[in-house]
Amino acid sequence: MDPIIEKHTISVLVDNEPGVLARVIGLFSGRGYNIESLTVAETDAEQKLSRITVVTSGTRMIIEQIKAQLDRLVPVHKVRDLTDEGPHIERELALIKVAGTGERRIEALRLADIFKARVVDATLTSFVFEMTGAVDELDDFIGLMRQLGLVDVSRTGIAAISKGPAAL
């Protein structure tokens, strides 16, 4: 009976003080938890709050443990399991550089249009696309670009928020 591995997206509201990210990352590495994606940025400059979004996986017991451990860190205000709490939106932004000429270049541009990726830089031999979307949409587009001259990708990791009017 293999325990079921679940994937959860967790939002953590923290004081934006030095070392807070190191505390969170150290917690995950020190206790052997997975990090599939982790993003952080200040979301309230006045109150000096940052929001960390972490995607992690583990058994139910581990997921609960991760939340309890996060909550125990002194600078943490709130921990919310978006996956548990109902419908939410997850988005990621990617910058994708593709180099090439001729038919491949035209095909890349055509696919970008279909995937609603924007051209944010162009030369005669390259494009940089900006694309925002769900993780697997980005994966699909990047997969296609791989065959058309992909040279570089930069992804932000996942930002997530619950649906409806309620705040974190």
Partner: peptide
């Protein structure tokens, strides 16, 4: 007193 001790 420590919720992280529970079900660990």
């Amino acid at each position: 007193i420590d919720p992280s001790s529970i079900n660990k």
